[in-house]
Design a protein around this nucleic acid. Structure first.
Length: 424
RNA sequence: GGAGAGAUGGUAGAGUGGUCGAUUACGGCAGUCUUGAAAACUGUUGAGGUGAGAGCCUCCGGGGGUUCGAAUCCCUCUCUCUCCGCCA
């Protein structure tokens, strides 16, 4: 959520920056500022009305003690009329508050100045590409055929148990999942990230804190009886650990990592994008989250990108790093780098990680703050990235490391976790 | 699921209708003392809104109500603890 301070002080800047995200903010900003002006007028009037009431009420207290009943009654009459007035003002204030709030949450985060303009995926900028694409000979199989032949992932069984997009991993398929999770967590913890096991369901406050609510409500599974949401990413519970927290300057940086399953309804997806492991309703992911001082957040972002790159490289997968254009960025992000690995059999790039700086956008919703050197409370910066998401990594491993006879060679770094070096 | 007790500032813990945004202790910060530290002493120390500022307003788990006046009384929701039941 953008701060009211920024909107008030430099609305033109906000409108300009949001054009990079192809977001026309003019009308909303005007509505917010108008509601804000009205709100302050009402607030001032209400405050003085209440101040008068408070004074009179304590006067009555004095009269009552001294037994001056008649005088007390006279003052009571005045308070009664003030009370009606403040009731009315309160209602108006609440209305303006709601108007303002309703509109402020509609504004996405401002993209930082490194973000290129653009409409969609085609305008993203490739900042690095390591194309070490394996030669798989004649007819390499896509992963959904390989896993069926090897009987390590059963999509049909998932349909029976739950529905499409809920695969069942079996035997070496399950084992390599667990190996990947352990491997990722160890890479992250040895880079100084503290490991967490958060809840997989969160309440509405948490959903709001990281920006899933209110606008992406339809993307989460919801348990109405208890009002809980299945997490779409570990980012939600992990970042919310610090909701309503005021940190000290030397508490930074806060570095956290967590493995969780993730659930996404993915309403509206179709076609080849959803084949096999490409898009699931339930998948596994290891996430890294950082809280930083504003002056350090971009350095931290570079560090996170380098960290994720190190892992992808170690796995031996061809990859590229994209800087997302304004049109392809998420609502809450100020800048995002995507990692994609090349899936040799499908002959396409698959997104496996997304590393973002949210600057103070989430922090403002979360009320995640710190005391600066003058003792003033300031908003912190939040960042996160996948490190890494499993299914597409697994898809790429399965396809890129297939042998002509349909077996899968396990990447070297995973072998101490799998306990086998080939899937057959 | 049933019965009962609670929820107050960073923490502990007072406060049951009238200067209570809140006694006190601990912690934190600053100072005195000290070569330095500790101890002791002194001061200071919640968040937000509004205003140039003095100040004023809001917040004692959330929401609603009673009252001239609510941390304090009533209703409701959430959560915590104790006992019972169920259970990996």
């Amino acid at each position: 959520m953008l701060t009211l301070k920024l909107l008030r002080e430099d609305p033109e800047f906000v409108i300009e920056r949001l054009k990079v995200k192809n977001f026309d903010a003019k009308e909303i900003v005007d509505l917010i500022l108008e509601a804000d002006r009205q709100r302050r007028v009402i607030q001032t009037e209400l405050d003085s009305c209440r101040a008068r009431q408070n004074t009179l009420a304590s006067q009555i207290g004095g009269f009552m003690k001294e037994g001056r009943k008649a005088e007390a009654e006279a003052v009571k009459a005045e308070v009664a009329s003030l009370k009606e007035k403040s009731k009315m003002l309160e209602a108006q204030l609440q209305e303006k508050d709601e108007q303002q709030w309703k509109n402020v949450v509609l504004l996405p985060n401002l993209p930082c100045d490194q973000v290129p303009c653009g409409k969609g995926a085609e305008d993203n900028v490739v900042v690095k590409i390591v194309e070490d694409i394996p030669d798989l000979g004649e007819n390499p199989l896509p992963h959904w055929e390989l896993v069926k032949n090897l009987d390590i992932i059963d999509f049909d069984l998932g349909v029976k148990l739950t529905g499409a997009g809920f695969p069942v991993y079996k035997g070496k398929g399950a084992r390599i999942q667990r190996a990947l999770i352990t491997y990722f967590l160890e890479k992250n913890t040895s880079a100084g990230y503290t490991e967490y096991q958060p809840p997989y369901m969160v309440n509405a406050d948490s959903g709001f804190g990281t920006g899933q609510l209110p606008d992406k409500e339809g993307q989460m599974y919801y348990a109405p009886l208890d009002g809980f949401y299945m997490i779409p990413t570990a980012e939600v519970p992990v970042t919310n650990i610090y909701r309503d927290v005021i940190l000290k300057k030397d508490d930074f940086p806060v570095k956290m990592t967590a493995y969780t399953p993730c659930w996404r309804r993915e309403a509206g997806s179709y076609g080849k994008d959803v084949r096999g492991l490409n898009r699931l309703h339930q998948f596994d992911k290891v996430e890294i989250v950082r809280l930083e001082l504003p002056e350090n957040s971009y350095r931290a972002l570079d560090e996170m990108v380098a960290h994720v790159e190190g892992i992808v490289k170690e796995l031996g997968l061809p990859y590229r790093i994209l800087r997302l254009c304004g049109g392809d960025m998420s609502f809450t992000s100020a800048i995002t780098y995507d990692f994609e690995v090349f899936s040799a059999a499908q002959k396409r790039w698959l997104e496996v990680s997304s590393v973002s700086n949210f600057e103070s956008y989430q922090a403002n919703r979360l009320k995640l703050r710190y005391k600066d050197e003058n003792g003033k409370t300031q908003l912190a910066h939040t960042l996160n990235g996948s490190s890494l998401a499993l299914p597409r990594i697994l898809a790429a491993i399965i396809e890129n490391f297939q042998t002509p006879d349909g077996r899968i060679v396990v990447p070297e770094v995973l072998r101490k976790y799998t306990g086998f070096d080939i899937i057959d």
